[in-house]
């Protein structure tokens, strides 16, 4: 984990200048979905960083904007959604203002994606080798056949695929194998940043473990930085260095994984951790199933106010800013004001 030299350089500073220590520095990112009934604010001024060689977990319930935020990092928000504000620095370059052609230069080379639905993420009519090959050749130009083959087989070795897969079509692979192909594809160009969008969600439990293991190994070998999106807190606990918790388009808490689990500060994080099933302590389920807000008309104040067990008056009026309360531990909550 990269050392943090000056207090305050992580997270809260959103001055439009990139942090030289971060591979990814997202500042005040805003993403809206335009709908006939008004703009849905999917990501509402979110800031976070990913340091060199680190794995950051991005968690939250479905619809909280975590996937939208991650897709924004690739500048791939699908219409009617669009990035309406903020900066996304990848290795010091802000990609928000880039043109379509400039983005193509940057995507996959600088930041690659391990997609959510590996089952359907491979083109069913193309052989695996061609799908990995076209990514490489698009960015590095045509290559001699044997060089390309060598390279793809090396990638297979890295992710633990047999060379037999080279000539197969996606429908001939199992779910786990498809996910490995996706991982191999993502690391083909040695990008500094890989975004893994719930990479294990469609797989059965045993395969989930194996894929998670593969991800860790790949990460260690290539020293890439990674964003791991997910809602499985157990998996996150094992895989990530730091964890960022999102709620309804806002960042609730960012903390090193140990302190997040040991002393979660935001009531929502506390709720998430409390709901991890444990066999040792049987506990009653703490559910606050209260309403979430209409994301088109966010109320003043904290987004979590309706479900928060400790909501106060101020929570209904002022949106809590994300502040660094302990070293490297940021929380957006009025409880600690």
């Amino acid at each position: 984990m990269a050392a943090q030299n000056l207090p305050g350089t992580v997270g809260t500073i959103t001055n439009g200048q990139p942090d030289p220590n971060a591979v990814l520095d997202v500042q005040e990112l805003r993403v809206h979905y335009e709908t006939p009934g008004g703009a849905v604010i999917a990501v509402n001024g979110v800031s976070f960083k990913v340091r060199r060689g680190e794995t950051m977990g991005l968690v939250g319930e479905s619809g909280c904007g975590k996937t939208t935020a991650a897709m924004a990092v690739l500048h791939m928000v699908q219409p009617p959604g669009r990035i309406v504000g903020g900066h996304i620095f990848i290795n010091g370059t802000d990609i928000v203002p880039l043109s379509e052609a400039e983005l193509r230069e940057f995507r996959w080379r600088q930041a690659a994606l391990i997609p959510q639905g590996a089952m359907n993420s491979l083109n069913p009519v193309m052989k695996v080798r061609d799908q990995i090959g076209d990514g490489i050749e698009t960015h590095e130009g045509k290559q001699p056949k044997d060089v390309l083959k060598r390279r793809i087989l090396d990638l297979f070795g890295t992710v633990g695929l047999s060379s037999r897969v080279y000539d197969l079509y996606p429908h001939e692979l199992s779910g786990g194998m498809k996910q490995r192909v996706c991982i191999a594809m993502a690391i083909a160009l040695n990008p500094p940043l890989v975004i893994a969008d719930e990479p294990t969600s469609a797989l059965d439990v045993v395969v989930q473990r194996i894929i998670a293991q593969t991800l860790l190994e790949v990460k260690a070998r290539l020293n890439v930085s990674m964003i791991l999106i997910g809602h499985d807190m157990g998996l996150q606990a094992q895989l990530v260095d730091r964890i960022a918790v999102m709620y309804a388009g806002n960042m609730a808490e960012i903390a090193p994984v140990k302190s997040a689990f040991a002393e979660p500060m935001h009531p929502y994080t506390q709720l998430l951790i409390a709901s991890i099933p444990s066999i040792k302590h049987k506990k009653p389920l703490k559910v606050t199933e209260g309403l979430t807000h209409d994301l088109r008309n966010p109320p003043p104040g904290c987004m979590f106010q309706l479900r928060c067990p400790r909501a106060m008056d101020v929570c209904r009026q002022v949106r809590p800013p994300l502040r660094e309360l302990k070293p490297d531990h940021q929380v957006a909550c009025h409880l600690y004001a």
Binding site: Y33, E34, T35, P36, G37, V40, A42, G63, P80, D294, L295
Partner: peptide, 13 residues
């Protein structure tokens, strides 16, 4: 006819 955005609540329409 307008597009249905993913997040549009269905009840209203």
């Amino acid at each position: 006819t307008t597009a249905n955005a993913p997040a549009t609540p269905k009840k209203a329409s």
